[in-house]
Design a protein around this nucleic acid. Structure first.
Lengths: 341, 341
DNA sequence: GTGAAAGCGCTAACAC
DNA sequence: GTGTTAGCGCTTTCAC
């Protein structure tokens, strides 16, 4: 790799002049000297060694990103959002992937193992002098094992923490739950069956709370009998769709697309028209929601924006406004599964 | 951030001693001095500045990864494979995401725009002194715009190049096509309908060639009438499944899971038993293949291994054995859609 | 056992 | 306009 020194020698000038010219400092050299330097640099395929530059400037222009698992569907989009924002501001993103899903599956109970892995990644990032760290979870929940004497900014994406020194960026599950329910009510439905995830899930609680709020605002009594708790699987959708329909529900709101797809299957198997007669909503805007027939109405998660916002917090915030929690809106997408009035 | 200098001052020793102790050089200091140094370092939350270290060692221990688009399904797994291998060998992976899909959709025709973007990312990586670069494509094809006077190793993952100085790592589409066809033949089928992607696609050509090879080896005449060219969409599967079945085919081999899902839909709509009567195979092992009922038999792509192998090539290969092309095997997964004999 | 010093590539303050 | 120089944090050689 060519260095500034080599160029200086070849051009018969000092390194300072080369540095100045290459950094576009106007009038740093006579015009013909300047272009000679630039020519030499080009011919040598010169690119400045960023490590040397960072060392001397005492600023890394790096932000660290710790992903619980890069292969889980939400994560690449969030990373993409962070990366875009970094590019915009001349920052570099350093990725550390913990491979939780590969290691632990969907079992998030082994906190100690998670913690020890995470601390290793944090210290690796710290040695790269990152100016801030963003932690991306696969599944929204409280993260409790991040030390707070880290002397860099820290933000949680798709999760949160009780640590008041750290910020978090989440989607607004409750609002989306509210909006979807309102749509269903506006189509004349009052008995809206809900297929939740597990009761302890943050997503379940928030979306359900939005559902309840919308019913309340519409003057409809909340009935716990219209609510079932599944485990995010397609089969749960199938089973509970049957139960809810048979107990009189006329619309289905499943808390993810997989269960909504299962619900569709049951209605199709029983020759009940999906859409106009029985509208169905899912959640997440996963690929399957477009794959099913009819295509499933759903809520698209603001993943890119979550990433972008987290990065903004690291890069732009003063410490005052920092330690907040931000809720970004989902976009409700109506498709054939909720068509008609 | 604490430095070696501060520690040296606090411990009343020189930086050299601190460096030696912290790097575990035995006998670099008296035992009680050594533990004092270690204590101080710990209390200061010291982590060595990797930029300084890299600068002084003249070795970055970094490899660059350029992704066409991180949000396309194949990419995170390949990245994961690269990252794992890097970790193993003490390397850091630097990611550059070009966002092709976000920018161009599935149109790969604007070569100039791709090239100019790509060159920018290459030069960014070069300035980080990477020891090699891996290029990850979304869709397998020939990549022609990488300069070959880069003086770092270069590997193509999920794509290839005619550049003889560069290596490439791909999955073995042909072999998978062969194996799936053989399975179908072994179940007694001789008229096996194929729903390909577009004719110009590398995947189409290789998989089809495997199909032809298997027929040939089984003494079955290849019949072009049993082959349809779709566009990877579910609807293509639906339409061509009908055509193929009605023209006498008794098994379907679709070149991706989406089209296989479409095929399933047509058979289900027409009350034809999928599996025992008409076996169906997809390709890719996407999420939808497990989502469909019956679950779709398919070929799982060796994405993680492609990443891992690429990284190995960068890190371990001598220049001799380097410039090869590697084909990694897919894993055939039999599910309900090809059940029975 | 411990330390002084050079040097990695770069930038910036300051001289000339 | 151009050059000299110090120094970023670290490792390593060589004295003592």
């Amino acid at each position: 790799m060519a260095t500034i020194k080599q160029i200086a020698k070849m051009a018969n000038v000092s390194v300072a002049t080369v540095s100045n010219v290459l950094n576009g400092r106007a009038g740093a050299a006579g015009p013909e000297k300047a272009s000679e330097i630039i020519e030499i640099a080009k011919s040598l395929n010169y690119t400045a060694n960023v490590f040397a530059r960072r060392l001397q400037q005492g600023k890394s222009n790096c932000i660290g990103v710790i992903t619980e698992d890069l292969t889980v569907f939400n994560t690449p989009y969030i990373v993409d959002g962070i990366d875009s924002k970094c590019k915009e501001n001349g920052y570099e993103m350093i990725l550390e992937n913990m491979r939780f899903f590969q290691r632990f599956g969907i079992d998030f109970s082994n906190i100690e193992a998670q913690k020890s892995l995470c601390l290793k990644h944090i210290s690796s990032l710290l040695s790269k002098q990152v100016e801030g760290i963003i932690y991306i979870a696969n599944h929204c929940r409280e993260i409790s094992y991040i030390p707070d004497e880290l002397n860099v900014k820290f933000a949680y994406a798709y999760c949160y923490s009780s640590n008041k020194k750290h910020a978090s960026v989440l989607m607004d599950d409750e609002k989306a739950g509210y909006e979807i329910t309102k749509i269903l009510v506006s189509k004349g439905h009052t008995k809206i069956g809900v297929i939740c995830g597990p009761l302890f899930s943050y997503h379940t609680q928030k979306r359900l709370s939005g559902y309840q709020g919308a019913l309340f605002d519409s003057g409809i009594l909340y009935n716990a009998k219209n609510v079932r708790y599944g485990n995010w699987k397609k089969d749960d959708g199938y089973v509970y769709a049957k139960e809810l329909y048979e107990s009189g529900c006329t619309a289905i709101f499943a808390f993810n697309d997989l269960m909504a797809g299962g619900a569709e299957d049951w209605f199709r198997d029983n020759n009940i028209e999906i859409g106009k007669t029985v509208p169905i909503f899912g959640f997440d805007d996963r690929e399957v929601s477009r794959f099913c027939s009819p295509q499933i109405s759903t809520a698209a998660l603001p993943l890119f924006d979550i990433g972008k916002k987290s990065a903004e917090l690291i890069m732009n915030s003063d410490s005052e406004s920092y330690c907040e929690s931000f809720l970004l809106p989902c976009s409700i997408i109506e498709r054939a599964s909720s068509e008609g009035n």
